[in-house]
């Protein structure tokens, strides 16, 4: 549960928001604007903690209510990957460096981090654009770099907030398929918040959120 404000101004952004996601599973979370999807995502992303409830990631109890059970910064760094609506790449770093910095932050030496960054870019078909800056890449290419960065530290969960919103339908589908392939290949759980109903067939499980309540969609 997540409550903002108090008294007359109290707003319940999440009421009954429960979800279990297995390793290698790709999950979609649908819902209208204001349903609480982003609040849910930032809560399990350990950015905006819930008012009550529990979050368990990779068999580890991370949060009870607003109380963190672990060092959130370190946990987020090691277990979570993020992909956003906008690619959110660092503009003064090249494609390779955007991935490499995430690996270096996790304690890798620059040479090893560089090698792994190039491997990831190669895996996502972006090795030829490794030295390009974000401004030189298309929206789809930028999103692939962001996904590479999200995968950089072999996270248990990737959280994606409207990752295809800025892409055309063809590119959007490609990105969703990429998420599915990576989830199945790497055993990473992927939770995608999306409005895009055209690619729902790529998801293993689909949830719907409305008025702060999450329900499985059949």
């Amino acid at each position: 549960m997540k409550t903002y404000g108090s008294g007359n101004t109290e707003v319940q952004a999440m009421q009954d928001a429960s979800m279990n996601v297995a390793h290698g599973e790709i999950v979609a979370l649908l819902g209208p604007s204001g349903a609480g999807k982003s609040t849910f995502l930032t809560a399990i992303g350990l950015i905006n903690l819930p008012t009550s409830g529990r979050i368990t990631i990779d068999n580890q109890l991370v949060v009870i209510g607003p109380q963190p059970m672990v060092n959130l910064k370190i946990f987020r760094r090691k277990h979570l990957g993020f992909v956003f609506q906008k690619s959110n790449l660092i503009p003064f770093l090249s494609a390779r460096e955007n991935v490499q910095i995430a690996i270096e932050i996790n304690g890798f030496k620059p040479r090893a981090a560089r090698k792994r960054a190039l491997q990831l870019l190669d895996e996502l078909g972006m090795d030829s654009r490794a030295d390009n800056f974000p401004s030189m890449l298309s929206g789809g290419q930028q999103q692939r770099i962001a996904i590479s960065r999200a995968l950089a530290n072999r996270p248990a969960v990737i959280l994606a907030d409207e990752p295809t919103a800025a892409l055309d339908s063809h590119l959007g589908r490609q990105v969703m398929e990429l998420f599915r392939d990576l989830a199945h290949k790497h055993g990473t759980a992927v939770i995608v918040v999306t409005h895009d109903q055209r690619s729902l067939d790529v998801f293993d499980t689909i949830y719907e959120m409305e008025d702060g309540i999450i329900k499985p969609m059949h």
Partner: peptide, 10 residues
Amino acid sequence: SIALLKLIGA
């Protein structure tokens, strides 16, 4: 960029 760096654990 700084917020992003913080988000990825910098």
